[in-house]
Simulated scan of single mutants.
Amino acid sequence: MRLYRLDTPETEPTATPIEASPIAPASEGEGEGELEELLNASPDALFDEPILLFARQPGLTTGIPDLLGLDRFGNSVVFELKRGDSGSESASEASIVSQPQLYAQALDRYDYHELDALTDEYRNGDWPVPSTIAETDSLIEAYNDFFEQDRVPWELNRAQRLAIVAERITLQTRQSARWLRDRGLDIQAVEVQRFEAPSGESFFGATTIVDYDETRTQNSSQSKPGDRVFTIRVFTTAFPSIKDVLSADRMDPLLGNLTTNYPYLESQAPGHPEPVRYALRVNPYGDNEVKVAIDATGDGNMDAANYLRKNRDLFRDRGFTVSQRDSMRVVVDTWEDIEVSDLRQEEFIERVAARYVDLVNLGHEVFDVA
């Protein structure tokens, strides 16, 4: 980016270069402090779109991101800032790309209440905050005021965007960001430079080096998400008791649909039909219920749904309901009138996890004799 001051006298117009002025740390030991101050004051300068900042240097399980924001679609935006080149000094070329992914991974498991707690920390910190945040009592209120929308809490943080911001985005960072973007990650790389005019005034400008496909983050789907925090806690509580029957040492390869209200674990046990999934339906926002269920499409090595129904007496003896459905919720147990507050109760988490273990063990007992 090159800037000039244009003078147009009657004789001959002139253009005086405005010299680039490196963004130095605000004080010794603060690293990207001054760059952070610039972006905290005007995050929309980066993307040419409004961004509501709601957290600054929050402590996540995978580290401390510089800034967190929300876009007009309710997606979270993770800012990774670097003074100087994107892959210099303390930030290697690998970490400058991988670190914000770790932040986004941790943020993906945050529910609305945890986001709101980060907003409280931001509001009470020793730094300026947007007036919308300062003058409202909750994140959802601030969001709806800022974007003039009428969203509900669960619509926030359904997806995460990453933004790498540096004075110069190196070739390696560009290539890495483009590779990740082309494989579906919503990532951007932006150069921010400061300039000093002959008058002594300071300016800064932003140039987008790597952009993302906006249509991927508009969340056009109307399906409601579940509660990822509750889901992960139930699965991690149950997994040690069922990993042997699932034939897996780690949960990650078995996990599916985590961002929806119907996540599941899928068995890798030899001889078991592939389409059978052990699901956890979590919907405290609509019908206020939690279900554990066996889903079976009947398209595998055997007609799994019909075989489950043939064993209905065995399931019923253990307190499960067997339906006539051919796919979703063939075998099910349900908790009704569930509120979000119930999902934070350790006793309820353990009760659902224990029932999930019962379901998995019983399902494998049935299929082992198929």
Rank of each mutant, 00 (worst) to 15 (best):
R5Q: 14
T8C: 02
I18T: 02
G59A: 10
T62K: 12
L70G: 08
G74A: 12
K82Q: 11
R83G: 14
G84I: 06
S88M: 02
E89S: 05
A91Q: 03
P100N: 08
D111W: 01
A117T: 08
Y122G: 09
R123Q: 11
N124D: 10
I140S: 08
A142D: 06
Y143L: 07
D145G: 03
D150H: 04
A163L: 15
E167V: 01
Q175I: 14
I187G: 01
V190C: 04
A197R: 10
T208D: 11
I209N: 02
D211G: 12
E214G: 02
Q218R: 15
D227Y: 05
D227E: 09
R228F: 00
F235T: 02
P240D: 04
K243R: 15
S247R: 10
S247A: 10
A248Q: 03
G256E: 11
Y264G: 13
L265I: 06
N283M: 07
G300E: 04
A305I: 01
Y307E: 15
L308P: 03
V330C: 08
V331K: 01
V332C: 02
D333W: 10
D337M: 11
R344C: 01
E346Q: 13
I349G: 06
E350C: 01
E350N: 11
D358L: 07
D358Y: 04
L362F: 08
H364T: 14
F367L: 04
D368G: 15
